[in-house]
C-alpha cells in the first residue's frame, strides 16, 4: 500500500503545519476544486434527498494508465469540497494500479482529526473507497 507522489506531497504539506494553518490549507484546496466539465454537469444536478453534503463523483478509467476523476460539491460544503480536492489533486491522472494501492485509511494520515473531527474524516475515506471500487469495476475483465 503506497501513496501516489502527489498524494504524499499533500500529506507532507499538511504535516508541516499547525492546526490553524491546516484548516486554511484545506480551505485552499476547497477553493481549488475545478468545475465539472460540461458533459457531466446535468448528471450532477440530480438532487439527493436528505443528503447531508451532496457530492457528485465520477470516475473514468477508460485509460487505466491515466484515470480521470471528476468531483462537484456546493460552495456551502467547504469541508466536502476540500476532501474532494485533495483526492482530485492527489489521484487524478494516476494509474488504476496506483489508485488501488492507496490505503483506504489514507485520510487519517492528514493530521486533520482535530480540525474537522474524526467523524467527518470518514467522509473522505468514503469517497476514496468509492473511487477505488469504481476503478476496480471499470478495469475488471
Amino acid at each position: 500500500m503506497t501513496l501516489t507522489p502527489a498524494l504524499q506531497e499533500i500529506v507532507d504539506d499538511f504535516a508541516a503545519l499547525d492546526d490553524r494553518d491546516r484548516a486554511t490549507l484545506l480551505l485552499e484546496f476547497a477553493d481549488d476544486l475545478p468545475d465539472l466539465p460540461e458533459h457531466l454537469q446535468t448528471a450532477a444536478m440530480e438532487p439527493v434527498p436528505e443528503c447531508q453534503s451532496p457530492i457528485f463523483l465520477s470516475v473514468d478509467a477508460a485509460d487505466p494508465a491515466a484515470v480521470r476523476l471528476y468531483f462537484s460539491a456546493p460552495r456551502e460544503a467547504p469541508t466536502t469540497r476540500g476532501f474532494a480536492s485533495i483526492l482530485h489533486q492527489g489521484l487524478d491522472g494516476a494509474s488504476a494500479a496506483e489508485i488501488a494501492a492507496v490505503p483506504s485509511d489514507f485520510a487519517s494520515t492528514l493530521n486533520l482529526a482535530s480540525v474537522v473531527s474524526p467523524l467527518r474524516l470518514r467522509g473522505m475515506s468514503g469517497m476514496l473507497v468509492r473511487i477505488k471500487r469504481q476503478v476496480a469495476e471499470q478495469t475488471a475483465g
Binding site: A23, T24, L27, E76, P78, T79, V116, S117
Partner: peptide
Amino acid sequence: DEDVLLYDI
C-alpha cells in the same frame, strides 16, 4: 454548522 469550515469562508 454541519460543515465545520463553513464559518471560515
